[in-house]
Simulated scan of single mutants.
Amino acid sequence: MKTKTWMAACLMLVLISVLALAGCGDQKESNNGGNGASGASGNTSSAGKGNSGGNGEEPPSTNSSMLDQIKSRDKLVVGVKFDTKLFGLKNPMNDEVEGFDVDIAKALANIILGDPAKVELKEVTSKTRMPMLNNGEIDMIVATMTITDERKKEVDFSDVYFKAGQSLLVKKGSAIKGLDDITKGTKVLAVKGSTSVDNIKEKAPDATVLEFENYQDAFSALKAGQGDTLTTDNAILYGMVAQDGNYEVVGDTFTDEPYGIAIKKGETELVDAVNEGLKTLKSNGEYDKIYTQWIGEAPKTD
C-alpha cells in the first residue's frame, strides 16, 4: 500500500513537472512571438519615421533650391539698410523702413509670390550683409551693394538695378570742392565694409580715413566736426543732403558703382527669377515709378 502510494506521488510529481515545463515553453514561445512582432512593428515604425519625419509628412529636401524654399514658406526674407535715406531708412513716425531698395524688394516679392506684403525686411549694414546672406539669415541683399569682382567670389549678383558713383559730402562753405582737395591731413569719413573705403584710399592715399559702422554714425561724426568730408555713393549722399540742407555734394563722381542684388552663391534659379523680375518692373513702368519717387527724377537711359 505504501509502495502504491509512493508511486502515485511520483507520477503526480512527474505530471506536475511536465505540465510546468509545457507552461514555460508556451510562455517562452509567446514572449518570443511578442518580441518578434514588436521588433517587426518597431522596424516598420522606424522606416516610417525615416520616410515621413514621424508626422506623416515628407521632410524638406536638402537639395531644394532657395527659390523653392521661398515659395514653400511663402515669404521672401530680404536684407536692407535701415540707416540710408532714399534707399532704406526706418521712419521713426511709423516705425516702417522706407526707400528705393525697400520698394524694389516688395515689388520682387509681388512677382515671385504674388503679394508685395509677403516680404520680411531684416536690417543689414555694409559689414554684416554678406555674412548674414551666407549663413542663411536672409534670402538676398537689396542694400546699395556695388557689384565687384572680389564680391563675386563670395556671392552671385543680379543684373545692375541702380547706377551710382562715389563722391564727397561737405558742409557748405568747405574748402573741399572735389577729389583734388583731399590732401595729407584731410580726415575722410567712410563706412566699414563699403567699397568707398578702398576707393578713397586709392584715390587719395595721403588722407586719413576714419571708418564707422553705418552711414548715420558717419554723418553724425561729420556734423560733430570729427572729419572734413564724408565719402560714399552720390545717391546715398543726396539722402543726407535731404536730411540736412547745411551740407552739399561736391565734385564729380570718381568711380562707377553699379548696384546689384546679392544672392547666395550657386542659387542660379533665384538669380534668374530676380533678373526676370527686374525686367518685368522695367518693362511695365513700375521701376521708373519707384525710381522717380525716391531719387526725384526718371532714370537715365543707356
Rank of each mutant, 00 (worst) to 15 (best):
G50D: 14
S38P: 08
G251K: 05
N91R: 04
D180M: 08
N214E: 09
S72I: 11
K118G: 01
Y287D: 09
N51P: 09
V160N: 05
I176K: 00
V241W: 02
S167Q: 06
A117V: 11
M66A: 10
G23T: 09
F162N: 08
Y287L: 07
E286W: 10
A190F: 06
G266R: 05
N246D: 13
G50H: 11
E120K: 06
T128W: 08
I200R: 10
K4D: 09
L21V: 12
K152E: 01
V160A: 02
T62N: 08
E211G: 06
A109V: 07
K163V: 13
T125N: 02
E58G: 13
Q293R: 06
L21G: 13
G53W: 11
A164R: 03
G285P: 00
L67A: 00
N110K: 14
E123W: 08
M12T: 14
L76S: 00
L237W: 00
T144Y: 00
E150V: 15
A40C: 11
V197S: 01
D101L: 03
N135K: 14
M140N: 04
V241I: 10
A105K: 02
E257I: 04
S65P: 04
Q27K: 11
E213M: 11
T62E: 07
S196D: 09
D74R: 14
V271D: 00
D252Q: 11
S283R: 06
D256W: 07
W294H: 05
K163A: 13
S174L: 02
A105F: 07
E123H: 13
L222A: 05
F162C: 01
G136H: 12
F162D: 12
D26N: 11
